[in-house]
Simulated assay, not measured.
Amino acid sequence: MTHHQATHREVRLASHPGPIFLPENLEIVEMALPSPGPGELLLRNRWFRVSISTRLMASPDAQAVEGIPIPTLKPGDTLADGAIGEVVSCPPDSPFHPGDFVLHPLGWRDYAVVSAGSCTALPPRRMDPAALLGHGWTAYAALTRGVEVRPGDTVFVSSGAGAIGSMAGQIGRKLGASKVIGSTSTQDKAAWMKAELGYDAVVLRGQGPIASQLSQVAPDGIDVFVDMVGGEQLEAAFARARDGARFVLLGALTAELNDSHSSIVAPAKIDSFQMILKDIRMRGYSADRDGAAAFDDWITWLWERGSNLHFASTVFKGIENAPKALHEACSGKLKGVVLVEL
């Protein structure tokens, strides 16, 4: 495929999803190749990320949510998510050059026109796309900016096989945690988390109360909780919190993947008196608010300390398989970050 061609493909929302995001909720449309304006780059996408949050943003009453870098979607809208693109053309005064690789927010299409200010230059040294498009930087920012992991901590990560959780357990260990516990939905994922990601123990959703499972694997309690789920798992973590425990809340899949209705309402019941008595600190955190600084920290740390990290990903080849990728990601079948390679 060359930039001399006249058309390219992009993926649009065909219809709002029901309880399950189906491939037919999306359509692949052939479009005229976009033309860059002043200060814009023409990029050929090489990889883009497929995020579960797309389901939330495609629901009929979706509203923009700070911290979710995906726009609200109506039928006919082109999807968007993080992508790695190769510069095809750029303004003469641009810091970029044809052939450079950049990180940008307009995936789900073959080619993208993006303002130079929305692009992050990638190092010339080739890195695993999952390290750049994955949520390692989110996990790293959460564990260094959102809370601070200290040597000897017991860290609990909900949704430990997911895009953020698969990195948070490994990074927590490198930051000094002595015990890392995760939660997931299947025995298969649990075995993989222990073998590949280095989790010491895994609790299973749907295999009895999370609180009792957590008390068995963390009899002395937990010091840090990285939460992607909310609900029962947040309540269980709170019940096992040690004095001075630090909680960082990054998502609430109980709401986003609710069987009947995707929403941004995720209730949980916690004992506020215990929060006072145990000096528990709990904060919501979005790495996107720290933006480029958090990402730059991650790249630097990766070069210095990141050897031996396992970048979990599921890769689909070709834009024609992108609808299937989103369907399977929302079904909870996949491990790590979900990528489409073009």
Rank of each mutant, 00 (worst) to 15 (best):
I68Y: 13
V203M: 05
F48W: 06
I276Q: 09
D77L: 07
P219H: 15
G117L: 07
R305K: 14
A62D: 14
G134Y: 14
A190H: 04
L79S: 05
R49N: 09
L214A: 03
L132G: 15
Y111T: 13
I181S: 07
A322L: 05
K179E: 02
V157I: 01
P151A: 14
L13A: 10
M31T: 05
S263N: 13
G231W: 14
V217L: 09
M127A: 15
P267C: 00
Q5C: 07
V155L: 09
Q216Y: 01
A312F: 04
M228W: 10
P95K: 03
E235Y: 06
A58W: 08
P129C: 06
G206K: 02
S115A: 11
K74D: 10
R305P: 03
I264E: 09
Q207M: 05
A62N: 13
K333E: 04
D279H: 15
F21K: 12
C90F: 01
E320I: 05
V155C: 12
F295P: 04
G182N: 13
V114Y: 07
A163P: 01
A195S: 14
R46K: 14
F156V: 01
G291Y: 08
S215D: 01
L214K: 02
L277V: 02
I222Y: 09
V229Y: 15
P75E: 03
F247S: 08
L42I: 06
K269D: 12
R145E: 04
S115M: 03
T78E: 00
A64N: 10
A130M: 07
N308Y: 06
S159V: 01
R150F: 04
T314D: 01
G67P: 03
L143D: 02
A58Y: 10
G172V: 00
I68W: 07
T314A: 06
P69A: 04
G99E: 10
F273A: 00
K189A: 07
K324G: 00
P38D: 15
T300N: 09
A218C: 09
A116G: 10
Y140Q: 11
L257Q: 06
Q170R: 03
A322F: 05
D290G: 06
K179H: 15
G172I: 00
P36G: 13
A177P: 08
M1T: 13
P19K: 14
G67K: 05
L43E: 03
H4N: 12
A266T: 00
L13T: 08
I280V: 11
I280K: 11
D243H: 12
T138A: 03
N321H: 14
G162R: 12
V248H: 04
R125L: 12
A294Q: 08
I270P: 11
E66A: 14
F238W: 15
G176H: 11
D93S: 10
A239Y: 12
R125S: 10
H97M: 11
G176A: 06
I264F: 13
